[in-house]
């Protein structure tokens, strides 16, 4: 299978190193990984190991100090801010730890948001929204605003939002961290099912053993370096 994500000697530094002060932190140090299409992978490591930084760089939310990111063969490190936004819109779905739904939009509107940006017509948008709401079990809550939904329900909407535009890659940053155990399991089961049915590539950053149990590959990070890469 083709590589969907490929990083080459990807590095990200914070702080500075000079004669006066040495505050340089290598958040990510020459990380080179390849993720194939349809993988359900997890990046695992202790806090400060560089998991989120790696996810940010892969998602084009941050710019590397060294190295490059290729997504489906496209070099994104050199893209302008606007080009990156359009690339993310069409190719990447994000699921955030804190759900990060748009508070002034209802569940259905949050799901429709990216499709509106893509210029998909209303009929198609509506059809896809109804389908995905059924898949995540929220058909009866489509008109509720985020503050009228539980944490688990909000994360389901976030998953639906990430998947509805059918991106090549879904990046999920600790998606179960704020959920109770049962809700987390339900959500992971749902994502795994969607992964298997639709062939989307999932890449998680997580501490959660439940995700690790279900991941087809686990990449271990420590001090910004890959220390272990385990495929199951």
């Amino acid at each position: 299978m083709n590589n969907v994500i490929q990083t080459e000697t990807l590095s990200r530094y914070f702080g500075e190193s000079s004669k006066e002060a040495d505050t340089l932190v290598k958040a990510l140090d020459k990380v080179s990984i390849e993720i194939k299409q349809g993988e359900f992978s997890a990046i695992v490591g202790p806090s400060g190991s560089g998991k989120s930084t790696l996810l940010h760089l892969i998602g084009g939310l941050d710019t590397p100090d060294e190295g490059s990111v290729l997504l489906a063969g496209t070099q994104i490190s050199e893209m302008s801010s606007a080009e990156l936004c359009r690339y993310r819109r069409d190719n990447i779905g994000f699921i955030f730890q804190a759900y990060n739904l748009i508070p002034v939009l209802s569940a259905a509107e949050n799901i429709e948001y990216i499709m509106l940006l893509q210029g998909i017509d209303e009929q198609e948008r509506r059809k896809r929204t109804i389908e995905i709401l059924q898949q995540v079990g929220l058909s009866d809550k489509e008109n509720r605003r985020p503050n009228q939904l539980s944490g688990g329900q909000q994360q389901r909407v976030a998953v639906a939002r990430a998947m509805v535009s059918q991106p090549k890659i879904i990046l999920a940053d600790e998606p179960t961290a704020n959920l109770d155990s049962q809700t987390g399991i339900e959500l992971l089961t749902m994502m795994k099912k969607l992964n298997q049915e639709q062939g989307m590539t999932f890449l998680f950053s997580t501490h959660d053993p439940k995700i690790m149990e279900r991941a087809s590959r686990i990449i271990y990070l420590e001090d910004g370096k890959v220390v272990k890469d385990e495929t199951r």
Partner: peptide, 16 residues
């Protein structure tokens, strides 16, 4: 601010 981060992350362009 975080909301702008979210909508930018999901593909809203600076122009929008």
């Amino acid at each position: 601010t975080w909301e702008f981060g979210v909508i930018k992350a999901v593909g809203t362009t600076p122009q929008q």
